[in-house]
Design a protein around this nucleic acid. Structure first.
Lengths: 193, 193
DNA sequence: AATGTTGGCCAACTGGCGTTGACTTTAACT
DNA sequence: AGTTAAAGTCAACGCCAGTTGGCCAACATT
């Protein structure tokens, strides 16, 4: 066993805690995940979690520091925007461990006010801005962004959180061919506001 | 204070427990809701909850024994089905306490395996069947039902659970004019399976 | 080598949980 | 009126959570 500097030991422990916390928050939500269970999975003492992250809530905040890395839809030709958007999200979510953060937020947001706040913040700052930039009519931009959010989050909810069989069975190609046109429709259809 | 028969007292207590339980399960999910907090809201002793419902889990099952009462989409002319469907769900959810069931299930399903099973059961049995009956091509019926479910549940999630500001601001008419055509599109568009 | 510092473990405290059983009160029945 | 069964209360149990502080060992510093 190689000797490690204290810094390195510390860094590895911190990371092990974060990995275990992300996995458990995503799988079980906030309240079902315990400091003790995270510590057990990271193979350290519960008190170390407190030392490094202060409290359970602070650990949750650290575990959900999230960036959607959305593409700029405004620079995509109209008619291909829905396709680009849904491909982006699928790539993000289907990748190894890439969907953890969203699953954490959705699983926790339903029961935890702080998680719900974080979802609101992330979506308002990122998704809404990108969608609004891709819409011509500023009067309906916010409404269209909201509707796109419902479709995107609904897919994530059904596929990764609820794991509805009919939805998990869908191939990525089927989802792209089904949802892409829906997003295009939401961006362009006539909308009563 | 009027005298009550024992039966009537019992019935009122049972009902008060159920009302409080539904409200709290919907607002906080399964594990955050406690027998004690339900009893406090119903203004009775925690042990009464145990007497009437046996256990916390049984109380949850009793609180989620409801019916979506979905309309038969197959008997609606094509082109109006999305409109009818979204109107139905909005009427169901916007009504007084009508959205409790769905909020309970969504709020709890994310963190509780039993609640997730119930969501799967309810949706598979009710929503999926109705949608499948309204689709001509049996090869794509299940996929279309799944995609419609993502849109419907996504709307419910964003509007009633996460309460995203951009989504709660939408008027029912805006939602109808925006989502109705989306559902029609999902029912009829070409779909790669 | 002696010191201070840091990572880590252990044991304990506090508090809230679901649940139980004994007790008291109230309505129903004879 | 007196008995019985049901509705409701009370106090406690055992458990597990988050959190804390004291302790030890390994490292860094001088």
């Amino acid at each position: 066993m190689a000797r490690l500097t204290q810094q390195e030991r510390s860094r590895r422990t911190r990371e092990a805690i974060l990995v275990a916390a992300r996995r458990q928050f995503a799988a079980q939500g906030f309240s079902q995940t315990t400091i003790r269970s995270v510590a057990a999975e990271a193979e350290i003492d519960p008190s170390m979690v407190m030392r490094y992250y202060g409290s359970k809530r602070d650990l949750f905040v650290a575990a959900t520091d999230l960036d959607l890395a959305l593409p700029d839809l405004a620079s995509v030709p109209a008619g291909e925007r829905g396709d680009v958007a849904i491909r982006h999200f699928l790539a993000l979510w289907e990748g190894e461990a890439g969907d953890d953060l969203l699953r954490i937020l959705l699983a926790s947001a339903s029961t935890d006010p702080e998680a719900a706040d974080r979802v609101r913040a992330v979506l308002a700052a990122q998704l809404e801005k990108v969608v609004a930039a891709a819409v011509d009519d500023p009067a309906t931009a916010r409404a269209r962004a909201a509707l796109v959010a419902t479709q995107i989050l609904g897919l994530a909810l059904c596929r990764y959180v609820l794991r509805l069989p009919a939805v998990t069975e869908l191939s990525p190609d089927t989802i792209i061919s089904g949802v892409g046109p829906v997003i295009d429709l939401l961006l362009t259809e006539r909308l009563d506001v």
